[in-house]
Amino acid sequence: MREIVFDTETTGLNPHNGDRLVEIGCVELYNRVETGRSFHAYFNPGRPMPSEAEAVHGLSDRFLADKPLFHDLCEDLLEFIGDSPLVAHNAAFDFGFLNHELGHCGRPTVCMSRMVDTIVLARQRFPGAKHSLDALCTRFGVDRSIRIKHGALIDAQLLAQVYVELTGGRQIGLGLVAEVIEPRENQTLDPRTLEPAMLVATIRPPRPHAPSEEELERHAAFLAKMSDPIWNRLDSRG
C-alpha cells in the first residue's frame, strides 16, 4: 500500500485569518517502507511573515520572495500525492492549510477520509505520555539531531520513521549479523554477483560439553550418599 507522510510550514495558525502555506514536504512509503521518493517546495505566501512564525521555521520574507506561488506547483503536488492516504502529525492542521490552498486554486479539496493522524495513534498507544514529534522520536530512538528548526521535509522524514514504529513496524538499529564468508583461493568476492554455491562459511569447532573425570568422580560420590534413591525403586519394577 502506498502512503504519503507530509508536513507543512505556514505563516500562522489559521488559514481563515489570512495565514498561508509556505513549505510542504512529502515522503513516499510503500508497505511502510520509504521508497526514497519525496516532494518538497517553498511557496511565496504573498504576505509578510510574522516574527513568531519565522522564529519557529526560520523562513523569512527575503528567503521566500523569489519562491513560486502555491498555484505554480499545485499540479505537481497533486500528481505526487495521487489518491494515497496522507499521514501527518496533528493532521487536521496540515489538511486545513492544504485544502485552503487548493480552494484558492479552484481545485477539489483532499477528502478528510484520507487523513491519518499520528497524534491520534500516539494517544491510543501511549495515553498520558507526551505526543510531540520530538517526544516520539526520543521514545523510538529516531535520530533528530538535524532538526534545529521546524522544516517540512525534515519533519516528514522523521515522522515517517515514527509512523512505522507507531504501526508496529520495526526496531531501529536492529540488524542481523551476517554470516562470515571467506573467498576461495584466488577469488575476489563481489556481493552483487555472489551465488549461494560460491559462499564458504567459516565453521567453528564445537565447544566441549562432556564432564571431566574429576566431575564424574564427585558426582558418583554424591550419589553414593543418597539412601533409597527413587531411580533404584523404578529399576526394581522393571
Rank of each mutant, 00 (worst) to 15 (best):
R114C: 00
F80C: 08
S132P: 08
D143A: 10
R123S: 02
S84M: 07
G103A: 14
A156N: 10
I148W: 01
Q161F: 00
G169C: 09
A129L: 04
R144N: 15
D94P: 01
F97W: 07
T138R: 15
V87N: 09
K149C: 07
Q157E: 13
G169E: 04
V87A: 08
H150L: 08
E79A: 14
S84C: 15
E79K: 12
M115R: 15
G128V: 09
C111T: 08
L121A: 13
G141H: 09
A91M: 12
H100W: 12
L77F: 15
G106H: 03
H131W: 14
V116W: 03
L121P: 00
L153R: 04
R139H: 07
G168P: 03
S132C: 11
V162E: 06
R123D: 01
V142N: 04
L159V: 07
D117P: 00
V164L: 05
R144L: 02
D76A: 14
R144V: 01
R139T: 02
A152V: 08
S84L: 06
C137T: 07
A91Q: 06
R139V: 02
P85M: 05
E101R: 03
L86N: 01
C137K: 08
K149Y: 08
A122C: 05
L77D: 10
A91E: 06
D83F: 04
G141N: 12
D76W: 01
G103K: 10
I119G: 00
M115K: 14
F97Y: 11
P108S: 09
A152G: 09
S84P: 04
R139Q: 10
L121M: 11
S84I: 02
R114Q: 12
D94S: 03
A92I: 12
H104V: 06
S84N: 15
E79V: 08
A160L: 09
A129S: 13
A152W: 02
G151P: 00
Y163P: 07
V120D: 11
L159T: 11
L121E: 05
L136D: 07
I154C: 11
Y163H: 15
L102H: 06
K130I: 02
A88D: 00
K149S: 02
F126T: 05
A92P: 00
V116S: 04
L133P: 05
Q157T: 05
E79C: 10
E79P: 00
Q124A: 13
F93G: 03
D143P: 10
G168W: 10
R123C: 04
L166S: 07
G103V: 02
S84K: 05
A160H: 07
S145L: 03
D134R: 13
G141S: 08
A156W: 05
D155A: 10
R125W: 04
D143C: 11
V110T: 13
R147V: 03
D117H: 00
A92H: 07
Q124N: 12
D94E: 13
L159P: 03
F97Q: 01
A91K: 05
H131R: 13
L121G: 01
G128Y: 08
P85H: 12
A91N: 11
R107G: 02
L121R: 05
I148K: 14
V120F: 02
K130Q: 14
G82S: 12
Q161L: 14
N90I: 01
H131S: 12
F80S: 09
G151V: 00
D155E: 11
G141F: 10
M112H: 12
